[in-house]
Simulated scan of single mutants.
Amino acid sequence: MGSSIDHAGTWALGSFSRDDQPVFPALVCRDRVLDLSANDRVGRPDSVLRLLEDWGAARAVLDTLAADAPESDWIALDGLEVAAPVAPRQIFQAGANYRTHVIDLAVKHHDPSDGRTPEQVRADAAAQMDSRLEHPPYVFTGLPSAICGPFDDVVLPAHGEKPDWELELAAVIGRPARNLDPSEALDAVAGWTIVNDLTLRELVLRRDMPELGADWLASKNAPTFLPTGPVIVPRSAAPEPADFQLTLKLNGQVMQNESAKDMIFDVARIVAHCSKVATLLPGDLVLTGSPAGNGLVHGRLLRPGDVMDAAITGLGAQRNACVAEA
């Protein structure tokens, strides 16, 4: 990784290790970090999750530490191993939530036997976007065991035929929450991070039982299929999620480059919906969907040796090399 993280605001949160020592939670100020597990002022937490469990109190202390912690307490970022910033208990994943992405997929999967041209399919799909807002967002759950660090290798499963990328903005939950209204949902968000929600495209739909719908367990939860981080940027530093720009490059070529304004359901609607289905817990990740430009549409899926560079404005960047499963 580089020697600095380009994050919004004065500080961010991350998880790091050095010299084969256990992972520690840290305050990040671009090119340096402060080991919070050794800091009495914040209660010596053993993980970022512990901080999020008392986020109301921790946030004020972190503001102070970023401003006045002794210079001798800081560690240079260069040389540290960067882990995923938080180990969540629950992961919620919104599907088909970017207009252009959904329209592109409709055209890609169109069966021309219905007599419509690609242009007609695109127009029909666009017309359906507003009607979707009359219904809840489409959200499924993922496994925390799929998470890896923002600079770890992504292992392409030996049985996988069509591995694909899906860069996403993730909201990190900062307090227990249930039955939220969209008007208050963002108050439950501690901050933001980057997630690349990889998918084995050929396993999304069960060929033996198509009436059962999508098989998200099989298609999205291989180990390393959720590169996460590098940091959590507090919501106070980036309060408007619609302002984020998401960009993913494959071997240097831009594949995804879209504003979060293209979301069908905004972040507040997604978080509120999740809180009505389940109780949100501190540290949970709520993924908000991926913009247009995945490999299926480009006709280019992931292969061993590929390198993905993913970034969201103000949240830093990831770099993951793809390797074959042994």
Rank of each mutant, 00 (worst) to 15 (best):
I103L: 07
I103T: 14
D104C: 02
D104V: 03
D104W: 03
D104I: 00
D104Q: 02
L105N: 01
A106S: 14
A106F: 08
A106N: 13
V107R: 00
V107L: 03
H109V: 03
H109P: 00
H109D: 05
H109A: 02
H110Y: 02
D111S: 01
D111M: 01
P112R: 06
P112D: 05
P112G: 03
S113L: 13
S113V: 13
D114S: 08
D114H: 11
D114Y: 09
D114E: 12
D114N: 12
G115S: 04
G115F: 02
G115T: 05
R116M: 07
R116E: 11
R116G: 03
T117G: 13
E119Q: 13
E119Y: 11
E119F: 09
Q120S: 12
V121M: 03
R122S: 12
R122P: 08
A123M: 05
A123G: 08
A123T: 10
D124T: 09
A125N: 04
A125D: 10
A126E: 12
A127V: 05
A127Q: 09
Q128L: 14
M129N: 10
M129A: 12
D130M: 08
D130P: 06
S131P: 08
S131L: 12
S131G: 13
S131E: 14
S131D: 14
R132H: 07
R132L: 15
R132N: 09
L133G: 06
L133R: 14
E134F: 14
H135D: 14
P136Y: 00
P136T: 01
P136Q: 00
P136L: 00
